[in-house]
Computed example of a mutant assay.
Amino acid sequence: MISNRLLTIILGLLTVGLAGCSEIKEPTPLTYTQLLTGKEKKTWSLTSFEVIDDGEESGPVPASQLFSNACEADDQFVFYANAERKYEYINGPTKCASSEPDVLLEDTWTFVNATATLEFAFPLLSSGKLPYIVKSLTENSMTLEIYLDELDNVDASYRFVFTSASK
């Protein structure tokens, strides 16, 4: 009787001890910043834009129509996952001139979760940081919108769609 009881206690202790050793791994969802930067850095290409004026949408327009030279249309946006939150606007595969640098602009980016606001320098609009509302962000696509309501009597915004160029 004592040996059965002792065996039951030992088996119970072993079961509890072994169960405590197993580690349950739960998947970690990607944060907005991880979707933006990847693990180290992520490169984005502008694919289309849209103008929303007084609530009327222009419809998507290919990004190539923003540029006077085709060589500018393939320039890319690189967001780094480092502590400095480095950001680069770089020449794409086609340079406009062989003397043109690989990095056209270097700056930093910031992201505010509470307002889904991404601030960075977007050379098409300004060389300084501007606040863009993140309308959607996945691993492969990003839609940003900037509102122009700061100007007098203007009820308009620009919506930009980017596609991940990173593999």
Rank of each mutant, 00 (worst) to 15 (best):
L105K: 08
L130C: 04
V103A: 01
L124K: 01
T138D: 10
E40D: 08
D75V: 11
T138F: 04
E145H: 00
V61P: 01
F111S: 00
W44Q: 06
K41A: 14
D102N: 03
L118S: 12
L148V: 07
E40M: 09
E145V: 15
T110H: 07
G38S: 14
K135N: 13
A116M: 01
V154W: 03
N153V: 09
D54H: 07
L104E: 00
F77Q: 11
I90S: 06
F111Y: 05
F120M: 14
N113W: 10
V161Q: 12
I90P: 10
G92Q: 08
F67V: 00
R159S: 13
F122A: 11
D149T: 10
V134Q: 15
M1Y: 04
S22F: 06
L144T: 07
S164V: 03
L36T: 12
I9H: 09
G20N: 13
P101T: 01
V154M: 11
F67L: 02
A121S: 03
T8F: 02
E50P: 08
S126T: 00
F160V: 03
V112P: 08
P27A: 09
S127D: 05
G59Y: 04
M1K: 13
Y87H: 00
E145T: 14
M142C: 01
L104H: 05
A81I: 11
D152T: 12
N69Y: 07
I133G: 10
E84V: 13
K135T: 00
P29G: 13
K129Y: 14
T94K: 05
L151D: 10
Y87L: 07
Q34Y: 01
D149N: 15
K41I: 03
P131S: 04
L30H: 01
S3W: 15
G38C: 14
L66N: 01
G20C: 03
S68G: 06
N82E: 01
L66T: 12
K129I: 07
G59C: 07
E139D: 03
T31R: 14
L105F: 00
P27V: 14
W44Y: 02
E57A: 15
R5I: 15
I52L: 13
N82V: 01
F49D: 09
E40T: 11
G20V: 03
S64Q: 09
N82P: 09
A81S: 12
G17A: 14
W44M: 13
T33P: 08
D107V: 04
T163E: 11
S127A: 04
